[in-house]
Design a protein around this nucleic acid. Sequence first.
DNA 1: TAAGTGATCTCT
DNA 2: GAGATCACTTAA
Length: 178
Amino acid sequence: MKNILGKSFFARPVVEVAPDMLGKYIVCSAGNHEVYSKIIEVEAYDGPYDLACHASKGRTKKTEVLWSDPGTLYVYLVYGMHWMLNVVTTAKDYPAAVLIRATVDAVGPGRVTKYFGINKSLHGKIATTRSGLWFEDRGELISKNHILRTPRIGVDYAGPVWAKKPYRFVLDTKNRLQ
DNA sequence: TAAGTGATCTCT
DNA sequence: GAGATCACTTAA
C-alpha cells in the first residue's frame, strides 16, 4: 500500500502532523528511479509566537514560504553547509512546519538532505504530487507508545519557554527496522 | 571540542 | 558594508 500524503494530511495543527509523519516515507525522484527512506525523527515549529520558529523573526524573503499552503517544502541552509528539509503545515497564512531530522538511512537533518540530494531547488515546491519529492504512507502502523517526545535540538536561544517545549518526536529504536 | 561555511539579519 | 548569528557535521 502506497498512499501519497496529500494536503489534508498537512492541514492540521503541526503538533498533530509531526508525530503522524513518523513511520511514513520520504520519496525523491532521481532520474528514472526513486530514492526513499522511512522517517524516524521530526520536530515541530509552531507559528509566529514560537521563538524557535523562523516565522517569529518576521515574514521575510527567507521565511515567506512558511506562509504557503500546507504540504509546501521549506528548505534552507544553516551553518553555511547543511540543508534543512521542512514541510509547511496547518493552514495557508499560518507559519508552522515540521523539520525532518532523521530517517532510517540518514540520522541528522543535514545528512537526510545529503542522502536525498536535497537543496534549494526544492524550496517552495509542493510535496503532495508525485514529482520532485513527496511523502508516502506505506501502511506501517505506529503505536503512540513507541513515540518519544523531547525538547527540540539546538534552539536554546528561543528562551526558557519555547526551548523546552516537547516538540521533538522520535520513533522508538525497536520500531526503526525496515 | 572546535573549525568550517555562507545566507541573512541588524546595526552603521 | 561590517559583524553576529545560526533548526549541523566531522575529525580529532
